[in-house]
């Protein structure tokens, strides 16, 4: 069974169709890149996966069940900006996933884990920070980090919550080319080493083909001004990368 199943999905704003009849199955451990021209609705599609936007028609299922109507810990996200919280240290940002996500009356009331649970969470947070190369910066605030380091932190923070799927909205689009290449290496490593399914919106084709197992292009069949927004974008191309990338087997790349 697919992890994510999208069936006959439409999104319209007033009488303007953004997406029409999107059908998509995403397997567990896939890394899907969504590409397409500006305004083709790829970010709108990601927002619907996140429940930040509600589909006009159609169904999105996660693990065979319709996704909840609001964002939740089953779906993590990394944005291009504002992904990390400026008032928390690097370690505090990663710990926040446990502070907010853990169950138990004290945590629900105070938004904070205590005692042994906190020690365990701190250990896991430090392990994740080491994995993204931020172990030395645990006590800094995000504003003291470079753009690349902030996005590394955002990845660690999202992974701390152990989401079923990680949604990436042009996460590396604002970074310098050299920094971007470094973070691509990290992204590949994280995807191979952790139980990670990812859907990434990007306008950078080399990035899409360099990271993903599958590249999906959205495009409108017709996009003339005289159409008056009657045609939404559809899946124009669905390309499996060859040779296939296999999660957990970096040598196969």
């Amino acid at each position: 069974m697919s992890l994510i199943s999208v069936r006959h999905l439409w999104k319209e704003y007033d009488d303007k169709v953004v997406l029409e009849d999107i059908n998509l199955e995403i397997e567990e451990r896939a890394f899907v890149a969504l590409v397409g021209p500006s305004g083709c609705g790829k970010t709108t599609f990601l927002k619907m996966l996140l429940s930040e936007e509600i589909p006009t028609r159609g169904i999105i299922e996660l693990d065979g069940k319709p996704i909840p109507k609001e964002p939740g810990p089953d779906r993590g996200v990394v944005y291009q900006r504002y992904s990390v919280f400026p008032h928390l240290t690097v370690l505090g940002n990663v710990l926040l996933a446990k502070d907010l996500g853990a169950r138990g009356p004290g945590t629900r009331l105070l938004g904070r884990v205590f005692g042994a649970a906190r020690r365990a969470a701190t250990e896991k947070a430090r392990e994740l920070l080491a994995a993204v190369g931020l172990a030395h910066a645990a006590d800094k605030y995000p504003s003291q980090l470079s753009g690349g380091m902030q996005q590394r932190l955002a990845l660690a923070q999202a992974l701390m919550a152990e989401p079923r799927v990680l949604l990436l909205d042009e996460p590396f689009g604002a970074l310098d080319p050299g920094i971007r290449a470094d973070i691509h290496v990290l992204m590949r490593k994280l995807w191979h080493e952790r139980a990670l399914t990812a859907v990434m919106v990007t306008h950078d084709l080399p990035e899409a083909f360099g990271l993903a197992t599958r590249v999906i292009a959205f495009e409108r069949r017709r996009d003339e001004p005289s159409d008056g927004g009657r045609y939404g974008a559809r899946i124009a191309k669905d390309i499996g990368i060859w040779p296939p990338r296999v999660a957990g087997a970096p040598k196969a790349v």
Binding site: Y79, A97, D99, R112, Q157
Partner: peptide, 25 residues
């Protein structure tokens, strides 16, 4: 608005969102 969505993806309720994300900022 990304911060509000982000906090919810980390498991925040309305109350803990206010307590840990909105109030301190």
């Amino acid at each position: 608005p990304q911060q509000f969505v982000k906090a919810q993806t980390l498991g925040a309720s309305s109350w803990t969102l206010v307590l840990r994300v909105v109030l301190p900022q």
